[in-house]
Amino acid sequence: MTNKMTFKVNASRVDAHGSTLSCKDAGLVIDTDLQGRKDAFNPAELLMGALAACIIKGIERVTPILKFDLQGLEVEIHGVRQDAPPKMESMEYSIKVKTSESDQRLALLHDNVRKFGTVYNTIAPGTELTGTLTRAD
């Protein structure tokens, strides 16, 4: 028998310009305005944000196990949406890690990101998902 985690979020329309998203004790204003808005994440950006959070959380989870010297971390994601049918066609990520670890250990960390990320492994089959993990300057 496998253990399964469950998650729940709630979304509510505020008006034609936006909605709110909540879970646990957290909340976000989300961009559901047909014209778009600059002060909130739209659905595609939320998806890319979920991927970034998954990458960071996965690295946080594995660094103690690998005894990996993690001093800092940044993730940047670029996405391309196609119109017909509407979907995220591709996402490209760049992970920059501040560390004194070897290139071989950086490659091991990247392998762990690709193998064990829940959101990563949900997105990868339906989207061209590519990226790099490099040492930060």
Rank of each mutant, 00 (worst) to 15 (best):
D15P: 06
A136F: 08
A40N: 09
K67N: 15
A136L: 07
T32C: 05
I95E: 01
K8R: 11
M88A: 11
D33Q: 02
L106T: 11
T134E: 14
S102R: 11
G79Y: 07
T132A: 08
D39R: 08
S102N: 09
C23V: 10
G58D: 02
E89L: 15
I65A: 13
L108K: 14
A84D: 13
D69W: 04
V75K: 00
D103Y: 03
T32M: 10
V62T: 11
M48K: 07
S100P: 00
V14E: 12
A53S: 15
E76Y: 07
A53R: 03
P85G: 09
D69Y: 10
V113M: 05
A84H: 12
L28F: 15
V119E: 03
D83E: 15
K87P: 01
E60A: 14
T122H: 06
L21A: 12
G58M: 03
V119S: 03
F7T: 12
C54Y: 02
K57N: 14
P43R: 02
K96E: 13
L106D: 06
G117F: 00
H17Y: 12
E74Q: 15
V62P: 01
V29Y: 04
M88V: 15
V75M: 08
D25G: 14
E76T: 13
G18I: 00
G79W: 02
T127M: 01
A11Q: 05
F7I: 11
I59M: 13
M1N: 10
N42R: 01
F68D: 05
D33I: 02
E92P: 00
L70Q: 10
L73D: 13
P125G: 10
R61I: 11
D137L: 11
L108N: 09
L34T: 12
E76V: 12
E60H: 14
K115V: 02
L47F: 06
S19D: 07
P43K: 05
L129M: 05
Q71Y: 03
I56E: 10
